[in-house]
């Protein structure tokens, strides 16, 4: 999209954003170094080799997560804003620990990424509660953090069979805006194996779904895709194996 963007990994101790982005060998300084004044933002931010305007700020792999201070995080975010970044993506660790609280604290928007699975949906509900209560916006009485529901590993064929919660179910349960569903795709593992973001491989349905989500976030009205099982021809239905829509009586 061409926006100046930086992604910060807040999972101190379990750093992984560098790995999935394929820049793990170029990490010298990390977020904690910047917070402690041991390195500048310019030194710590790693420029992505594929996209000109994308930078990654890795988490520390060795330090304790308590090293993340609220003031420190604020300084980093202000510094990045001054450096001209238009979008600052804070990659939150799973759970509701300190790292997650710091990642969400200064947020304007929050993507709640969930699977259509009971534990994931319940945890999302919990996080939504924290987003409404434990953020800078909540504490200052400002407008609430805008939340977006992003469903991943969605399998429409299983939804049709009643084996998986549908996107409508999850929307109803969580009661927030739905920004899109990413279909379950083997390409996601392949791209993380290679350290290439899936969205760059626009041949795959998962990448197209992510691109739709980005466009929707930027205000474009894109119809939802990938919510229904792919249509199958007569022959694949007859001989197509486990996902064939004709279910045997049990």
């Amino acid at each position: 999209m061409g926006y100046r963007t930086v992604a910060i990994d807040f999972d101190v101790g379990l750093r992984n954003l560098d790995l999935v982005m394929g820049c793990e060998r170029r990490v010298v300084y990390d977020l904690i170094n910047v917070i402690r004044g041991e390195a500048t933002l310019r030194q710590a931010a790693i420029k992505d080799k594929r996209l000109d305007n994308l930078y990654i700020l890795p988490a520390s792999q060795t330090r304790d997560k308590d090293a993340l201070s609220r003031v420190g995080v604020e300084n980093v975010i202000e510094g990045l804003k001054k450096a001209g970044f238009e979008y600052i993506i804070c990659d939150s660790p799973a759970g509701i620990e300190h790292g997650a609280c710091m990642a969400m604290y200064y947020a304007d928007h929050a993507f709640v990424v969930t699977n259509a699975e009971v534990s994931s949906v319940r945890d999302s509900d919990r996080i939504l509660g924290l987003l409404d209560a434990k953020t800078h916006r909540a504490e200052q009485g400002l407008e609430r953090v805008k939340t977006h529901l992003l469903l991943t590993r969605y399998a429409p064929s299983r939804v049709v069979k009643g084996e998986m919660l549908s996107h409508k179910d999850v929307i109803e349960l969580l009661g927030i805006d739905f920004i899109g569903a990413i279909p379950e795709s083997p390409a996601v593992l392949q791209s993380s194996n290679a350290g290439v973001p899936i969205i760059l491989d626009q041949q795959t349905d998962a990448a197209q779904a992510y691109m739709d989500v980005v466009h929707r976030f930027l205000g474009e009205d894109r119809p939802q895709r990938f919510l229904d099982p792919p249509k199958r021809g007569f022959f694949s239905r007859m001989f197509g194996g486990a996902d064939a829509p004709i279910a045997a009586a049990g």
Partner: peptide
């Protein structure tokens, strides 16, 4: 020809 089982999604919901 009917669906084999109601599925577990409703239970989850």
């Amino acid at each position: 020809f009917r669906k084999s089982s109601p599925g577990s999604a409703n239970v989850a919901k």
